[in-house]
């Protein structure tokens, strides 16, 4: 079970937020591409991109929350996170996706696809962790 309650959506998901890539380039959050994450992780000494596949999406403990179960990395380690419906994840080759694209668009003006079971999300782990 998830260990903590969902956190409020942080400000950097608001459309127009300025994001700095690992090479110093600045982009708006809505303009980020899969390659930006991959390239940034490649030149990071500490962080590694993992593929995290959505395996289940269940209701959370509060009305606006969901519990998402991911299979992380090559070993498909099971990780659950509880987040707000509007929390966006970046899906490989697709872009921002959330469990409630309407809410994400309304609250943050960030265009989203619907996050579905089987989607493969960008996630991070520390290099060297096993």
């Amino acid at each position: 079970a998830p260990s903590s309650s969902p956190v409020a959506l942080p400000p950097f998901f608001m459309r127009g937020s300025i994001i700095q890539l690992a090479d110093g380039e600045l982009k708006r959050v809505e303009d980020l591409k899969t390659e930006d994450f991959i390239h940034s992780a490649e030149i990071s000494s500490e962080l590694k991109i993992d593929s995290s596949t959505v395996e289940r999406i269940d209701d959370g403990q509060t009305p606006n929350a969901v519990v998402i179960q991911f299979a992380v990395g090559e070993l498909k380690a099971q990780v659950c996170v509880e987040v707000l419906l509007e929390y966006p994840f970046f899906v490989f080759g697709q872009g921002w996706s959330s469990c409630s694209p309407d809410r994400t668009t309304r609250l943050f003006e960030l265009s989203c696809a619907k996050l579905c079971v089987g989607d493969v999300c960008v996630s991070l782990t520390l290099r060297g962790l096993r």
Binding site: P10, I18, I19, L26, S40, C121, L129
Partner: peptide, 25 residues
């Protein structure tokens, strides 16, 4: 084309969930 001075700049990794499969299961 992007003015960084008067607006906050967030690091790219802030946007990515940190899913570390190292917790006890």
């Amino acid at each position: 084309n992007v003015e960084p001075r008067s607006v906050p700049v967030f690091p790219w990794h802030s946007l990515v969930p940190f899913l570390a499969p190292t917790q006890s299961d």
